[in-house]
Simulated assay, not measured.
Amino acid sequence: MTRTETEMTAQLVQDLLRDQHPDLADRPVRLGARGWDNQLWRLGDDLAVRLPWATRSADALLRKEYAWLPALAPGLPLPVPVPQRLGEPSKRFPRPWTVTTWVPGAPADRAPATSATEAADALAGFLTALHRPAPHGAPAGGRGRGGPLAACAEQFAEGLAAATGAGLIRDLDAVRAVWADAVAAPAWGGPALWLHGDLPPANVLTEGGTFCGVIDFGDLCAGDPACDLAAPWALLPDGAVDRFHAAYRPAADAATRRRARGWAVLRALGGILVGEAGLRGRPGGKATWGPPAHAALRRLVATAR
Protein backbone atom coordinates (compact mmCIF):
# COMPACT_ATOMS: atom_id res chain seq x y z
CA MET A 1 0.00 0.00 0.00
CA THR A 2 1.21 3.52 -0.83
CA ARG A 3 -0.54 6.16 1.23
CA THR A 4 -0.78 9.69 -0.16
CA GLU A 5 1.15 11.99 2.15
CA THR A 6 -1.02 15.01 1.41
CA GLU A 7 -3.56 15.58 4.17
CA MET A 8 -7.01 15.47 2.63
CA THR A 9 -9.40 18.09 3.93
CA ALA A 10 -12.44 19.99 2.72
CA GLN A 11 -10.17 23.00 2.25
CA LEU A 12 -7.87 21.00 -0.03
CA VAL A 13 -10.83 19.91 -2.15
CA GLN A 14 -12.06 23.48 -2.46
CA ASP A 15 -8.57 24.70 -3.37
CA LEU A 16 -8.21 22.03 -6.07
CA LEU A 17 -11.56 22.98 -7.52
CA ARG A 18 -10.70 26.67 -7.42
CA ASP A 19 -7.48 25.97 -9.34
CA GLN A 20 -8.90 23.68 -12.04
CA HIS A 21 -12.71 23.82 -11.98
CA PRO A 22 -13.58 27.20 -10.45
CA ASP A 23 -17.25 27.00 -11.40
CA LEU A 24 -17.63 24.23 -8.78
CA ALA A 25 -15.51 25.78 -6.04
CA ASP A 26 -18.32 27.48 -4.13
CA ARG A 27 -20.27 24.30 -3.50
CA PRO A 28 -20.29 22.95 0.08
CA VAL A 29 -17.78 20.13 0.67
CA ARG A 30 -17.98 17.34 3.25
CA LEU A 31 -16.42 13.90 3.62
CA GLY A 32 -18.47 11.15 1.99
CA ALA A 33 -16.42 7.96 2.42
CA ARG A 34 -12.91 6.52 2.71
CA GLY A 35 -12.46 3.49 0.46
CA TRP A 36 -9.61 1.13 -0.26
CA ASP A 37 -8.09 3.27 -3.04
CA ASN A 38 -9.88 6.61 -2.85
CA GLN A 39 -11.50 9.15 -0.60
CA LEU A 40 -14.86 10.55 -1.67
CA TRP A 41 -15.83 14.10 -0.74
CA ARG A 42 -19.41 15.23 -1.27
CA LEU A 43 -19.74 18.31 -3.45
CA GLY A 44 -23.17 19.73 -2.85
CA ASP A 45 -26.02 17.23 -3.10
CA ASP A 46 -25.39 15.68 -6.50
CA LEU A 47 -21.61 15.54 -7.06
CA ALA A 48 -18.52 14.13 -5.37
CA VAL A 49 -14.75 14.60 -5.67
CA ARG A 50 -12.80 11.34 -5.82
CA LEU A 51 -9.17 11.54 -4.67
CA PRO A 52 -6.77 8.58 -4.64
CA TRP A 53 -5.15 8.15 -1.23
CA ALA A 54 -3.59 4.66 -1.43
CA THR A 55 -2.26 2.19 -4.02
CA ARG A 56 -0.44 3.77 -6.96
CA SER A 57 -2.67 1.82 -9.34
CA ALA A 58 -5.59 4.04 -8.33
CA ASP A 59 -4.32 6.84 -10.61
CA ALA A 60 -4.69 4.76 -13.78
CA LEU A 61 -8.03 3.37 -12.58
CA LEU A 62 -9.49 6.86 -12.19
CA ARG A 63 -8.39 7.78 -15.70
CA LYS A 64 -9.90 4.55 -17.02
CA GLU A 65 -13.25 5.36 -15.42
CA TYR A 66 -13.13 8.84 -16.89
CA ALA A 67 -12.43 7.47 -20.36
CA TRP A 68 -15.00 4.66 -20.52
CA LEU A 69 -17.77 4.99 -17.96
CA PRO A 70 -19.66 8.00 -19.37
CA ALA A 71 -20.49 6.01 -22.53
CA LEU A 72 -21.59 2.92 -20.59
CA ALA A 73 -23.64 4.58 -17.86
CA PRO A 74 -26.73 5.57 -19.92
CA GLY A 75 -27.43 1.92 -20.74
CA LEU A 76 -27.34 0.71 -17.15
CA PRO A 77 -30.56 0.31 -15.14
CA LEU A 78 -28.99 1.24 -11.78
CA PRO A 79 -27.33 4.59 -11.03
CA VAL A 80 -23.53 4.65 -11.21
CA PRO A 81 -21.05 7.47 -10.43
CA VAL A 82 -20.48 9.10 -13.81
CA PRO A 83 -17.23 11.09 -14.13
CA GLN A 84 -17.89 14.74 -15.02
CA ARG A 85 -14.50 16.41 -14.69
CA LEU A 86 -10.86 15.33 -14.50
CA GLY A 87 -8.33 17.00 -12.22
CA GLU A 88 -4.67 16.78 -13.15
CA PRO A 89 -1.72 16.38 -10.74
CA SER A 90 -0.38 19.67 -9.39
CA LYS A 91 1.87 21.05 -6.67
CA ARG A 92 -1.15 21.15 -4.40
CA PHE A 93 -2.02 17.46 -4.97
CA PRO A 94 0.36 15.19 -6.94
CA ARG A 95 -2.20 12.72 -8.31
CA PRO A 96 -5.14 12.85 -10.75
CA TRP A 97 -8.65 13.16 -9.34
CA THR A 98 -12.19 13.29 -10.67
CA VAL A 99 -15.54 14.91 -10.08
CA THR A 100 -18.39 12.39 -10.42
CA THR A 101 -22.09 12.22 -9.87
CA TRP A 102 -23.08 11.15 -6.34
CA VAL A 103 -25.04 7.89 -6.01
CA PRO A 104 -27.11 7.70 -2.80
CA GLY A 105 -27.56 4.47 -0.87
CA ALA A 106 -25.90 2.35 1.81
CA PRO A 107 -23.09 -0.13 0.96
CA ALA A 108 -24.43 -3.68 1.01
CA ASP A 109 -21.75 -4.81 3.46
CA ARG A 110 -23.40 -2.49 5.99
CA ALA A 111 -27.01 -2.77 4.81
CA PRO A 112 -27.45 -6.15 3.08
CA ALA A 113 -30.24 -6.76 0.58
CA THR A 114 -33.21 -8.41 2.29
CA SER A 115 -35.83 -8.55 -0.50
CA ALA A 116 -34.62 -11.68 -2.28
CA THR A 117 -36.73 -11.47 -5.44
CA GLU A 118 -36.34 -7.73 -5.99
CA ALA A 119 -32.61 -7.80 -5.30
CA ALA A 120 -31.97 -10.80 -7.53
CA ASP A 121 -33.91 -9.20 -10.38
CA ALA A 122 -32.16 -5.84 -9.93
CA LEU A 123 -28.69 -7.40 -9.96
CA ALA A 124 -29.55 -9.60 -12.94
CA GLY A 125 -30.90 -6.61 -14.83
CA PHE A 126 -27.79 -4.59 -14.15
CA LEU A 127 -25.37 -7.33 -15.25
CA THR A 128 -27.51 -8.21 -18.28
CA ALA A 129 -27.25 -4.59 -19.41
CA LEU A 130 -23.52 -4.31 -18.67
CA HIS A 131 -22.41 -7.63 -20.17
CA ARG A 132 -22.31 -6.52 -23.80
CA PRO A 133 -19.45 -7.15 -26.24
CA ALA A 134 -16.68 -4.67 -25.52
CA PRO A 135 -15.03 -2.76 -28.37
CA HIS A 136 -11.50 -3.28 -29.60
CA GLY A 137 -9.14 -1.53 -27.23
CA ALA A 138 -11.27 -2.06 -24.13
CA PRO A 139 -9.11 -2.46 -21.02
CA ALA A 140 -7.91 -5.88 -19.91
CA GLY A 141 -8.59 -6.93 -16.35
CA GLY A 142 -6.00 -6.55 -13.64
CA ARG A 143 -5.10 -9.42 -11.28
CA GLY A 144 -6.54 -11.95 -13.71
CA ARG A 145 -10.07 -10.54 -13.71
CA GLY A 146 -12.03 -11.57 -16.76
CA GLY A 147 -9.37 -14.08 -17.79
CA PRO A 148 -8.87 -17.81 -17.18
CA LEU A 149 -9.57 -18.74 -13.58
CA ALA A 150 -6.54 -21.04 -13.48
CA ALA A 151 -4.30 -17.97 -13.68
CA CYS A 152 -5.43 -17.15 -10.13
CA ALA A 153 -4.41 -20.52 -8.68
CA GLU A 154 -1.57 -19.04 -6.66
CA GLN A 155 -3.86 -16.35 -5.29
CA PHE A 156 -6.38 -19.01 -4.28
CA ALA A 157 -3.74 -21.17 -2.60
CA GLU A 158 -2.32 -18.23 -0.65
CA GLY A 159 -5.76 -17.03 0.44
CA LEU A 160 -6.86 -20.49 1.49
CA ALA A 161 -3.65 -21.07 3.45
CA ALA A 162 -3.94 -17.73 5.23
CA ALA A 163 -7.61 -18.22 6.10
CA THR A 164 -7.01 -21.78 7.23
CA GLY A 165 -4.00 -20.77 9.31
CA ALA A 166 -6.12 -18.13 11.03
CA GLY A 167 -8.77 -20.74 11.87
CA LEU A 168 -11.37 -19.12 9.59
CA ILE A 169 -12.17 -22.09 7.33
CA ARG A 170 -14.04 -25.13 8.58
CA ASP A 171 -14.74 -27.30 5.54
CA LEU A 172 -11.40 -27.17 3.76
CA ASP A 173 -12.07 -30.13 1.45
CA ALA A 174 -15.35 -28.67 0.22
CA VAL A 175 -13.73 -25.31 -0.54
CA ARG A 176 -11.04 -27.07 -2.55
CA ALA A 177 -13.69 -29.12 -4.34
CA VAL A 178 -15.58 -26.01 -5.49
CA TRP A 179 -12.35 -24.46 -6.74
CA ALA A 180 -11.21 -27.62 -8.52
CA ASP A 181 -14.56 -27.98 -10.27
CA ALA A 182 -14.47 -24.34 -11.37
CA VAL A 183 -10.93 -24.57 -12.77
CA ALA A 184 -11.87 -27.75 -14.65
CA ALA A 185 -14.87 -26.10 -16.34
CA PRO A 186 -14.58 -25.31 -20.07
CA ALA A 187 -13.14 -21.87 -20.78
CA TRP A 188 -15.23 -18.92 -21.97
CA GLY A 189 -15.59 -19.15 -25.74
CA GLY A 190 -17.66 -16.05 -26.40
CA PRO A 191 -16.66 -12.45 -27.09
CA ALA A 192 -14.99 -10.36 -24.43
CA LEU A 193 -17.85 -8.71 -22.53
CA TRP A 194 -17.82 -5.53 -20.49
CA LEU A 195 -17.34 -6.39 -16.80
CA HIS A 196 -17.48 -4.35 -13.64
CA GLY A 197 -14.64 -6.51 -12.32
CA ASP A 198 -15.04 -5.76 -8.60
CA LEU A 199 -18.46 -6.41 -7.07
CA PRO A 200 -18.01 -7.09 -3.36
CA PRO A 201 -20.88 -5.87 -1.17
CA ALA A 202 -18.98 -2.65 -0.42
CA ASN A 203 -19.38 -1.60 -4.07
CA VAL A 204 -23.12 -2.20 -4.39
CA LEU A 205 -25.62 0.14 -2.72
CA THR A 206 -28.97 -0.72 -1.17
CA GLU A 207 -32.16 1.03 -0.18
CA GLY A 208 -35.41 -0.53 0.98
CA GLY A 209 -33.98 -4.05 0.94
CA THR A 210 -32.88 -4.06 -2.70
CA PHE A 211 -30.06 -2.62 -4.84
CA CYS A 212 -30.14 1.03 -5.80
CA GLY A 213 -26.70 1.69 -7.27
CA VAL A 214 -23.27 0.31 -8.19
CA ILE A 215 -20.04 2.19 -7.52
CA ASP A 216 -16.26 1.95 -8.06
CA PHE A 217 -15.63 0.99 -11.68
CA GLY A 218 -11.86 1.14 -11.30
CA ASP A 219 -11.56 -2.52 -12.33
CA LEU A 220 -13.78 -2.08 -15.42
CA CYS A 221 -12.51 -4.50 -18.05
CA ALA A 222 -13.49 -6.91 -20.82
CA GLY A 223 -13.54 -10.69 -20.59
CA ASP A 224 -15.34 -13.73 -19.21
CA PRO A 225 -18.64 -12.79 -17.49
CA ALA A 226 -18.04 -15.47 -14.84
CA CYS A 227 -15.90 -12.90 -13.03
CA ASP A 228 -18.99 -10.74 -12.33
CA LEU A 229 -21.39 -13.68 -11.97
CA ALA A 230 -19.60 -14.50 -8.72
CA ALA A 231 -21.32 -11.52 -7.12
CA PRO A 232 -24.75 -13.05 -6.32
CA TRP A 233 -23.16 -15.51 -3.87
CA ALA A 234 -22.14 -12.68 -1.54
CA LEU A 235 -24.76 -10.05 -2.37
CA LEU A 236 -28.06 -11.92 -2.26
CA PRO A 237 -29.99 -13.47 0.63
CA ASP A 238 -30.00 -17.23 1.06
CA GLY A 239 -31.77 -19.07 -1.74
CA ALA A 240 -31.78 -16.16 -4.22
CA VAL A 241 -28.92 -17.19 -6.52
CA ASP A 242 -31.20 -19.38 -8.65
CA ARG A 243 -33.63 -16.48 -9.02
CA PHE A 244 -30.75 -14.33 -10.25
CA HIS A 245 -29.78 -16.87 -12.90
CA ALA A 246 -33.41 -17.20 -14.01
CA ALA A 247 -33.48 -13.44 -14.65
CA TYR A 248 -30.00 -12.96 -16.12
CA ARG A 249 -29.88 -12.89 -19.95
CA PRO A 250 -28.66 -14.60 -21.94
CA ALA A 251 -28.79 -17.42 -19.44
CA ALA A 252 -25.34 -18.48 -18.26
CA ASP A 253 -24.42 -22.00 -19.33
CA ALA A 254 -23.32 -24.64 -16.84
CA ALA A 255 -19.61 -24.05 -17.46
CA THR A 256 -19.93 -20.31 -16.84
CA ARG A 257 -21.81 -20.92 -13.61
CA ARG A 258 -19.08 -23.35 -12.50
CA ARG A 259 -16.36 -20.79 -13.22
CA ALA A 260 -18.41 -18.16 -11.39
CA ARG A 261 -18.40 -20.34 -8.27
CA GLY A 262 -14.61 -20.41 -8.44
CA TRP A 263 -14.44 -16.63 -8.67
CA ALA A 264 -16.88 -16.43 -5.77
CA VAL A 265 -14.66 -18.66 -3.62
CA LEU A 266 -11.67 -16.47 -4.43
CA ARG A 267 -13.58 -13.30 -3.50
CA ALA A 268 -14.96 -14.89 -0.34
CA LEU A 269 -11.47 -15.79 0.89
CA GLY A 270 -10.32 -12.24 0.24
CA GLY A 271 -13.30 -10.78 2.09
CA ILE A 272 -12.77 -13.06 5.06
CA LEU A 273 -9.11 -12.10 5.33
CA VAL A 274 -9.72 -8.38 5.01
CA GLY A 275 -12.60 -8.52 7.45
CA GLU A 276 -11.18 -10.79 10.10
CA ALA A 277 -7.48 -11.59 9.81
CA GLY A 278 -5.66 -8.49 10.87
CA LEU A 279 -5.92 -6.43 7.69
CA ARG A 280 -8.50 -3.98 8.98
CA GLY A 281 -5.92 -1.26 9.45
CA ARG A 282 -5.42 -0.95 5.71
CA PRO A 283 -7.41 1.66 3.80
CA GLY A 284 -10.84 0.20 3.12
CA GLY A 285 -10.31 -2.87 5.28
CA LYS A 286 -13.46 -3.28 7.35
CA ALA A 287 -14.94 -5.81 9.71
CA THR A 288 -18.17 -5.55 7.69
CA TRP A 289 -16.49 -7.45 4.85
CA GLY A 290 -16.34 -10.66 6.89
CA PRO A 291 -20.02 -11.64 7.33
CA PRO A 292 -21.06 -11.54 3.63
CA ALA A 293 -17.83 -13.37 2.69
CA HIS A 294 -18.54 -16.11 5.23
CA ALA A 295 -22.14 -16.34 3.99
CA ALA A 296 -20.94 -16.71 0.39
CA LEU A 297 -18.48 -19.45 1.33
CA ARG A 298 -21.18 -21.31 3.28
CA ARG A 299 -23.49 -21.23 0.26
CA LEU A 300 -20.73 -22.27 -2.12
CA VAL A 301 -19.61 -25.18 0.06
CA ALA A 302 -23.17 -26.47 -0.02
CA THR A 303 -22.90 -26.82 -3.81
CA ALA A 304 -19.98 -29.24 -3.39
CA ARG A 305 -21.97 -31.72 -1.33
Rank of each mutant, 00 (worst) to 15 (best):
P135R: 00
A185W: 10
A157E: 13
G223Q: 04
G209V: 09
E154Q: 11
R176E: 12
L235S: 14
A140Q: 14
D198F: 00
V175R: 14
E154Y: 02
A150M: 07
L195D: 08
A177N: 07
L195A: 12
A163Q: 01
E158K: 11
A240E: 07
T128W: 01
A192L: 00
G239F: 12
G137Q: 08
L160V: 06
P201E: 11
C221T: 09
V204H: 12
C152N: 14
A177D: 13
A230M: 06
A138Q: 01
N203Q: 02
C221A: 15
C221D: 04
F217E: 06
A230S: 15
L235Y: 09
D173I: 07
V204Q: 13
G208A: 02
A134K: 05
A162F: 00
E158C: 07
I169N: 09
I215E: 04
D198H: 02
L149Y: 11
G218L: 09
D228I: 10
L195S: 11
G142S: 12
A174D: 13
A134R: 03
G208N: 09
F211A: 02
A129N: 05
A192P: 01
T128C: 03
P201C: 06
A240I: 10
G167P: 00
A129R: 15
L160P: 08
L149I: 15
A150G: 12
E154K: 01
R132H: 14
P191D: 14
A151Q: 13
C227F: 00
D219R: 11
G142A: 13
G141T: 03
G146N: 05
L235F: 04
P201N: 10
G137R: 09
F156C: 10
G208F: 02
A174K: 11
G189T: 14
R132Y: 00
V214C: 08
V214F: 08
W194P: 07
L199R: 05
H196P: 02
V183E: 13
P225H: 09
